[in-house]
Every structure is written in structure tokens, then in C-alpha cells.
Simulated scan of single mutants.
Amino acid sequence: MTAARVLVVVPTYDEAENVGPILDRLHRSVPGAHALVVDDGSPDGTGELAEALAARDERVHVLRRTVKAGLGPAYVAGFRWGRARGYDVLVEMDADGSHHPEQLPALLAALTEADLALGSRYVPGGRVEDWPAHRLLLSRAGNLWTRWALRLPLADATGGFRAVRGELVDRLPFDDVASHGYCFQVDWAWRAVRTGARVVEVPITFTERIAGRSKMTLSIVGEALVRVTWWGLQDRLAERLPGRVRRPVSGRVREGRRSNAVR
């Protein structure tokens, strides 16, 4: 993976305070990586600021959208933009500093033996910093429910810091992904495992944002609960219906180890 072209997709909505510093940290950590800021019409000027950064740095690109369509559609648009331009590896990363760009080299290194590297808060070595107790409890409970309902062997299926080989993105049916919030992360991780992709969880540190406001809402949590429950029911019903054969969950999932930096 040392010669791979890496594109870090960074969705934004009202992240003017954060987008510049996070891109600086990214390029200090992985100088050869390019970044695509996908802005959903931020009223605080995030899109304009990102374009100013792009004018000064050829590694920064901007995809501006006119409406706030949600996390899932932003990532799908970013993936398509990147694959159309020949990037070999696509990375998801939040703009608010919750994900540490300094840990991206470990995710990239994991792709030497995997198709998808998930940054995980809940494997040994992973941790969460500065979250209130109710947020941590909600996240833990959501992942436990997801693991049981979907029979998905992942400790942190909802995490949004991940790196994927472009070939896997091409194989996954993103056209019918309807999830808008963080449920999108569960949706496509589940699809990846079920297609037989090699998946590895790499321990990361997740830190609560310092500036700006969280985009998490009760409606986003509700969407995740309803969709995961419905997918799990459909999966189990498919096993019981005559003539229906459930596609086996054949992806190989393992816990990753901290790796040396890859440039």
C-alpha cells in the first residue's frame, strides 16, 4: 500500500472552526494523502473556507452540495468522486477532531492484509476520551444491539474512522443505501462482511469535539435503531422461508494491531 493514492473524505456542515486544523494535522501525519471536503451547504462559510484552502494546496479538494443531505449521501458522493479520479484507498474521517489523523497510518498499514480497516474504540487498545457517560452508554449499547441483531462480528460497527480499498467500494451496492446518519456506517460494514471482504478492527482513540456543535440527534439514533432491527428481522425471516437461502456471513474479521506509519 506504500504507493497507493489515498483520498480522505471529510464531510462537513458548519465546521469552519475545525476544517483547517484537521487538514493541517492530516497532512503532517500522512503528507501524501489528498483530502476531499464534502460540504452540505454550511451556512457558517465552511465551504468557502475549504475552497480557499484548496486554492493554496493541491492536495485539498472540495465537493460542494446545496442541501444538508446527511452523512451517508456525503460519503457515497465522496467515494464516487474519488474512484472516478483513480484513488486506490478511500478514508472516512470526521472534521471535528474526534478522529485523530495521527492514527491514520495504522489504518493504512492494516490494508496490506485487509480490504477494510475499521478504527475501533471498543477493541483492546481503543478508548473514548471526554464523552459524557450517557453518550458512551448509548454508543456501547448500540454496538451490542447491532452485533446481536445482525450477527455482525464487529466490536465497533458504528465508528466512522475507516480506510477501504477502492476495489471493495466498487463491489458494494451503494446505489441502494438509504441510511443518512451514522447508521450508514453499520449498513456498509455489514454489506462488506457479507460479501466476504477481509475486515480488520484497528484500535483508535476517539475524542469529543472541542469546537462547534455535535450533529447527533434523537432522529439519527432512531433511524439506526429502526433500520438495524428491521435488517435483522429480514435476515432471520429469510432463513425460515421455503426456497430462500440466506447469503452466508463469510467475511473474515479480526482485531488489528498498531502498525508502523505508511507513507
Rank of each mutant, 00 (worst) to 15 (best):
M1L: 14
S139F: 15
W131T: 01
V60D: 07
L137K: 12
H180Q: 12
A224P: 01
P124Y: 15
V249K: 04
D39Q: 03
R135N: 08
P124L: 10
P153D: 07
V10Q: 08
A192L: 12
L152H: 01
F184A: 06
A261G: 14
A117S: 10
G142Q: 13
H134D: 14
R83H: 11
R258P: 02
G160P: 05
V262A: 14
D130F: 12
A69D: 10
W145P: 00
S98V: 13
L233M: 08
I220G: 02
E201W: 08
H27E: 02
S120L: 07
E129N: 08
I204W: 14
G86M: 09
V60E: 05
G72R: 00
V89E: 13
H180D: 11
V19L: 10
W81G: 09
P153R: 06
E255Q: 03
G159N: 06
D235S: 05
E48A: 15
H134Q: 09
W145E: 05
S250Q: 11
R198D: 12
R257Q: 11
T66V: 10
G78K: 00
V226Y: 10
T205H: 06
T207E: 15
L152V: 00
G159R: 05
L116M: 14
V9F: 05
E255C: 01
V67I: 01
E17Q: 09
V164G: 01
V9Q: 09
R236V: 13
L218T: 07
A261E: 13
E48W: 00
V169E: 04
L36W: 03
H27R: 06
Y182I: 01
L152I: 00
A95R: 02
T207L: 14
A189H: 09
L63M: 11
F174M: 02
R246L: 05
T112D: 08
D235Y: 00
D24S: 11
T217V: 12
L150H: 07
S219T: 04
V60M: 05
I22R: 05
A84D: 12
W81Y: 09
Y75D: 07
R147N: 10
D187V: 07
E208A: 15
I220M: 06
R171C: 13
T2D: 14
Y122F: 14
W190H: 08
L118T: 07
L136C: 01
V262C: 13
V38W: 01
P248R: 03
A261P: 12
R209T: 03
D39T: 04
Y182T: 03
A74M: 03
L237T: 03
D57N: 14
S29E: 02
V19H: 10
V91D: 04
L90K: 13
R65D: 07
G82A: 09
R85F: 03
L36Q: 05
D88K: 13
L118S: 02
L136W: 11
A163K: 07
G86E: 11
L107D: 09
G82T: 07
